[in-house]
Design a protein around this nucleic acid. Structure first.
Lengths: 208, 208
DNA sequence: ACCACTATGATACGGTCGTATCATAAAGAG
DNA sequence: CTCTTTATGATACGACCGTATCATAGTGGT
């Protein structure tokens, strides 16, 4: 049966299997045999494409961030072109909340990787989010822009507010994940702060 | 050498060994043999006091929350009696940040347990924080009280602000843990919001 | 003084996991 | 059409882990 097959495609398929099973059992509990079974291939094949488990985990992480980036990008595009700073921020933040199965897996695995990287220096060396400050900088600039155009209260510290929004969103995501909070209440809390930061121009309907 | 020994004391000793080694290697990586070695006892003894690893983990978690509760209580006591709502909130929040080795371990293990409980229903069934809403309710009441006495801006939603402060603090803690943020910058962001919520009565000097 | 029970040690067992080895079927090159 | 290379399968190995078993030393009760 061995035809000439696209390597990258195969690797992607296996990486997605890893993400699937990790989302189900937890990242710590996935073995190479689980991944192989989930992908519908033999254990040997997983070894063939990723020589070691460590490399598989790294690639899976990479694939996860790629998919997440694409997802956020799609949400932004869905918000329309130039939807205004507030709607843009809303799209960014709400896209990060675990509201469906895919984003739930995203959040769980991101958190798992983060916690793992505290005690695993090999993982910590991996640049596992493109740039940890990228989102922070983007939000800061959006808020500053809104302040300049009078859409946002000029009296607030844009960077601190950006940091705060991201921090809140992260914890809200985890709270949703563990069942302590509903997506609705998390969204409400975020909206509360957006209402505070931005002047009362109405919310873009496409992002609600 | 077997004297009559206090069981609870022994269990505590072993649980602390678990916390120690888990803080070093990560919760997922601790084995019973590691715990035994860390406690300076034999593997058999760990089995003797905790029949199964699951029970050991549960007890370790329990012990962790107890120590954390005691720590927060000590911080509150150190803030003096009736230090005012803002100082009390400051003490609560800052006590949760991983600023020293002990609180660093606390935060790491709490986070690990939380993430683990998403995919481990036995852990999820454990009531692993006394009451998840206890801190939220406490903060809400403190803010409300300050609003009634004019110490805080009456125009804010006390509960949402409480939720937000706790959410921010949690993420800040993780950020400090992974080295993305310094304790100082985390504190500064929290102070920013306290300054916003509370009227400009100066901060209690004992908590800075 | 002896007995029964608590406390501790040494070691073994079955399972799983990551990895390695051996084998071989298919496909492109000449 | 062979031959080399790529792709896949079956299986084995050594390590480790949680747990169980067997043994025994010390101690309190009577």
């Amino acid at each position: 049966m061995p035809k000439r097959v696209d390597h990258d495609e195969r690797r992607t398929q296996i990486a997605e299997a890893l993400i699937q099973v990790a989302g189900r059992q937890g990242l710590h509990a996935v073995g190479m045999r689980d991944v192989a079974a989930e992908a519908g291939v033999s254990l040997r094949l997983v070894q063939y494409y990723f020589q070691t488990k460590e490399k598989l985990l790294f690639h899976g992480l990479q694939h996860l961030t790629d998919r997440f980036t694409a997802r956020v990008g799609a949400r932004l595009a869905a918000a329309g072109q130039d939807p205004g700073p507030r709607a843009t921020i809303e799209a960014l933040l709400l896209a990060s909340l675990p509201t469906d199965e895919e984003s739930r897996t995203f959040h769980l695995l991101y958190s798992s990787y983060s916690i793992l990287s505290v005690t695993d220096e090999a993982l910590a060396a991996q640049p596992f989010i493109d740039n940890p400050d990228a989102a922070e900088n983007a939000l800061t600039q959006l808020i500053q822009k809104a302040q300049e155009t009078g859409q946002a209260d000029a009296g607030t510290d844009a960077r601190t507010e950006a940091i705060s929004l991201l921090a809140m969103t992260a914890t809200m995501g985890t709270s949703i994940l563990v069942g302590q909070r509903t997506p609705e209440s998390a969204t409400a809390a975020l909206q509360y702060h957006l209402d505070r930061i931005f002047n009362s121009s109405q919310t873009s309907p496409t992002t609600r």
